[in-house]
Structure formats: C-alpha cells, structure tokens
C-alpha cells in the first residue's frame, strides 16, 4: 500500500490490474472482503469499499449468498478506459522529461522503436 492515496482506491486498482492481466478471468470469483483484508492486512471495511467501487462501475457483480464475480465484458471495458488514460499518464510525462533532456519527439519515437526491437 502506498501512503499517498486512499487504500480503497488502491484495492480497486489492484483488482482491476488482475482483471486486465487475466489473473482474474471474467465470470471468476473474486476473493471475499475478509480474505482480501486478511491477506493485505487492511481493515475489512476499507477492502469492502474498494470492492463496492467496482460493483458500482459494473466491473464486478454480486451473486447472492455466494460472493463477488467478474462481470462479462469487464476486461474489455477496463482496457478501453486505460487506453484513454494512457496519453496523459505515460505519453505526456515522457515527452516532458525528454524535452528537459533535449531529446526531440522524433528521436524519442526512434528510441521507442529500437527498444521494442531488442
């Protein structure tokens, strides 16, 4: 857990990461709030808040008496959301740092190509 952001947001993000990576496939069961709390050593109410965030967003759904499951189509929706954020989260800071070091956008593009080819 990092100290700069609320834990419930970090829980939601961690679950999202697992859905995007495929570790939590669609229609699979998500660990219970108490399991998450015990494993991550956090308050169960905080874990519940993180899970509820994803329920409200339709990423997870509840099967009464059984538990939480990953919704159909959840991965695709998360990937789309993350693509939207990719520019501001990664491209903008990358360009800013490159500019500070005197690397032009063209040089940067070439560097990305070289790195990918390695």
């Amino acid at each position: 857990m990092d100290d700069s952001r609320p834990i419930f947001l970090q829980i939601a993000e961690q679950l999202e990461n697992d859905i995007v990576s495929g570790a939590l496939p669609e229609e699979s069961q998500v660990p219970s709030t108490n399991e998450l709390a015990a494993y991550l050593r956090i308050n169960p109410a905080t874990a519940g808040k993180g899970v509820n965030l994803l329920v409200e967003a339709g990423i997870l759904y509840k099967k009464r008496g059984i538990g939480m499951f990953v919704a159909d189509g959840a991965r695709e929706r998360l990937v789309a959301q993350r693509r939207d954020r990719f520019r501001e989260q990664y491209i903008a800071p990358l360009l800013a740092e490159a500019r500070g070091l005197g690397i032009t956008p063209t040089q940067l593009a070439a560097m990305i190509g070289e790195e990918d080819a390695r």
């Binding site: 100290d3 700069s4 609320p6 905080t46 808040k49």
Partner: peptide
C-alpha cells in the same frame, strides 16, 4: 477517517 488522511498532506 484514515483513508481521508492518506494524501491529506504531502
């Protein structure tokens, strides 16, 4: 609330 204090100061 503890979560509100996270990020309350930087």
């Amino acid at each position: 609330d503890a979560d509100d204090l996270r990020g309350a100061a930087i």
